[in-house]
Amino acid sequence: MLSGIMNMAAAIRTSGRTLPVNAEFSGRKMSPQTRRTVPMDTGWVTECERYMLWIDGVGAWQLCIGQNFLIGGPTLEHQSADICLLANISRKHAALQRIQEDWFIHPYQQTVVSGRTVADRSLLKSGDEIRLGERVRLGFRIPSVLSGSAVVDFESSHRPAQSVNGIILMTDTCLLGPRRDYHICCPEWPDLVVLFRQDGQLRCRSKMSLKVNEDRVRESAALNNGAIVTGDDFRFRIERLKNLNGT
């Protein structure tokens, strides 16, 4: 598998695309797990880790953890995009990248950001509308000043194969709670729950008393695949999506 990716990376490299920020990516806060995969020149160093958040009474969100997020259309092959939409777009249509404090979009195919066509890597700001191909429209926002993570909303009817309310591009933390400026607004929840990464692990913490799989959470607790987080009046489950290269 690894050699396959190497080959592919080599093939892509010959196509002439280079990304000057690669070195920076592999150096920052990367978990051992993510660092293991091979950087690729097309602009996504790794496939990100992908989770589904099933939140009772609120909805379902896809949580992508990483620094580079590839958006693409459906494919029957193993290698599909991190954000894979059922839409008439290229399999590698564009990538969203977090570089230090900024978000960039790297278009591979026809991409329009808030009305202007972008050909090269361009800065994204909260509230931008991303149009891929003719008809796919996505909203990009960074809801919270407390976190650099972004949210991708579906503005056209194009979605992943299963219903999701939105996609969280998590670079540091993901905030769930009653306020609108959290990544996931759960109106009925009494207070904030934070998801964050530490030592290559996805963890959660809150001021409220939480249980993860029936175990009371002290400071914070690791969320493994299938973990059910329960509060006094809410519940959600986290499910690891199979990474598309098999990891």
Binding site: W54, I55, D56, G57, G59, A60, E188, G226, I228, D233, F234, R235, F236, R237
Partner: peptide, 24 residues
Amino acid sequence: MKFTFAPETRPLDGYTIKRAIHRG
């Protein structure tokens, strides 16, 4: 909101509950 069935339970053969939507 409390719901009876937890995620991943299969009260009906062939269907896996993923999340509660609401209480009507």
